[in-house]
């Protein structure tokens, strides 16, 4: 937050590298974004949980598990799972892409609204990890020998990676870029340096 003279390379206060605007910021956003999306696809194709009971053995993908719960009449939990593991991640990908495109090509939406969107994406990002934690809790807890066991599936790894990559993507996005279009070409000059 301290202000340093133009061209200062290192923050005089905390010693971290200083950029007026990182010219590579948007490229980093996109790089992490694609990695995140690349992991999110297998996260939905592979099973998240493998449940073995006395009579049956089944493996469920994220969506499959929710559908199963809905079949059993457990609509509330099914909707929570769909919102937390499908709707929110997809909305996050779309929002980040929208913000990056907005900075790149200009956007008609107001700065305030785009900034709010960014803050929501940044805040919600880490909460997606809850799915991985739930898998960890379920599979450590449900170890009742022959009666029932739950083991984590391969999707959990991809899901965790996808959350980490999207968090990195959101962190690489420089929210100040949203506001630069206001400042009479200020930001563009800085980028050229």
């Amino acid at each position: 937050m301290r202000v340093a003279p133009m061209g200062t390379r290192v923050c005089p206060r905390c010693g971290s590298p200083l950029h007026s605007r990182d010219p590579l910021a948007l490229q980093k956003v996109w790089a992490w974004w694609f990695l995140g999306l690349g992991c999110y696809i297998p996260a939905n194709l592979y099973p998240m949980l493998e449940t073995r009971t006395l009579v049956s053995s089944q493996s469920d993908t994220i969506v499959g598990g929710a559908v199963e719960l809905a079949h059993h009449g457990n609509w509330g939990v099914a909707i929570i799972i769909l919102v937390a593991s499908v709707l929110i991640p997809v909305a996050k990908f779309l929002a980040l892409a929208g913000l990056a495109i907005g900075v790149w090509r200009g956007s008609r939406r107001s700065q305030t609204r785009r900034h709010l969107l960014y803050e929501i994406v940044e805040y919600i990002g880490r909460w997606s990890m809850i799915d991985v934690f739930v898998v960890a809790i379920l599979s450590s807890l449900v170890q009742l020998q022959a009666l029932a066991t739950i083991t984590p599936g391969r999707a959990s790894l991809f899901f965790a990676l996808s959350v980490i990559f999207t968090m990195l993507s959101a962190q690489s996005f420089d929210s100040r870029l949203i506001w630069d279009s206001l400042g009479g070409g200020d930001g563009k000059e800085d980028l050229a340096q």
Binding site: F133, A136, L157
Partner: peptide
């Protein structure tokens, strides 16, 4: 958390939850 069903009983600690993933995971 501890779970009980059909006479069987199991406790889990945080460390056990973290180490629930094995093999490639």
């Amino acid at each position: 958390l501890s779970i009980g069903a059909g006479g069987l009983h199991h406790d889990a600690s945080i460390i056990e939850a973290a180490f629930a993933f094995d093999g490639g995971l």
